[in-house]
C-alpha cells in the first residue's frame, strides 16, 4: 500500500540528488575535460529535472516525485586571456584564450538552500504521518 510515507521518501531522495548536482557544480568551478575530438571542453553545469512519479500514486490521487533526468547545460564558457596556458586555444578568433566553466556560484548556493528547505519540509511531513499513525493506536485505549 502506497502511503504518505512513501511519497515523502520519494521527495527526500529527489532533493538529495538535486543537492548532489549542486555540490558537483560547485566542486567543478574550474574543471575541464577532454571531449571525443581531443579538445579541452570546460565543465558545463548539471541540473535535475523533476517529474511526478506515476508509479507512486495512492488511491486518492496523491503522487510522488522522481528525478527524470540529469541534464547538462550548454552555455557560453568564460574566456580568459592566457596564451601561455597549456589549454589555450591555438587558432581562430579566440586565439590565446582559455575557456573556463561558466557557473554562477550564487545561483547554485541559492538552489542548495531551496533544496535543503524542501528536504526539511518533507521530513516534517514524514514526522506528522508517523505521529498520526501512532496516535491512531489510541483508539484502542
Amino acid at each position: 500500500m502506497i502511503s504518505a510515507l512513501d511519497i515523502s521518501t520519494s521527495a527526500l531522495v529527489a532533493q538529495r540528488i538535486r543537492l548532489d548536482t549542486v555540490s558537483s557544480n560547485l566542486a567543478n568551478l574550474t574543471s575541464m575535460s577532454r571531449d571525443e575530438n581531443g579538445k579541452m571542453q570546460p565543465y558545463q553545469a548539471r541540473f535535475v529535472m523533476f517529474q511526478t512519479d506515476e508509479e507512486l500514486e495512492t488511491k486518492h490521487g496523491a503522487v510522488g516525485v522522481k528525478v527524470s533526468s540529469v541534464e547538462t547545460e550548454n552555455v557560453e564558457p568564460n574566456y580568459k586571456y592566457d596564451p601561455n596556458h597549456p589549454y589555450a586555444i591555438k587558432d581562430g578568433p579566440k586565439k590565446g584564450y582559455v575557456a573556463y566553466p561558466n557557473i554562477n556560484m550564487t545561483a547554485e548556493m541559492v538552489d542548495a538552500l531551496v533544496a535543503t528547505r524542501a528536504y526539511e519540509a518533507n521530513l516534517g511531513a514524514m514526522e506528522l504521518s508517523k505521529n498520526m499513525a501512532q496516535q491512531s493506536l489510541r483508539i484502542l485505549g
Binding site: 502511503s3 510515507l5 512513501d6 515523502s8 521518501t9 527526500l12 531522495v13 538529495r16 514524514m126 508517523k130 499513525a133 501512532q134 493506536l137 484502542l140
Partner: peptide
C-alpha cells in the same frame, strides 16, 4: 532516506499488530 522510511513503516506495522 529510503531505508529509514522502510524501517519506519515496518515499525508502525509492528506497533499496530502488537496493540491489536
Amino acid at each position: 532516506e529510503k531505508q529509514v522510511a522502510e524501517m519506519t513503516k515496518n515499525h508502525l506495522l509492528h506497533n499496530f499488530a502488537l496493540t491489536v
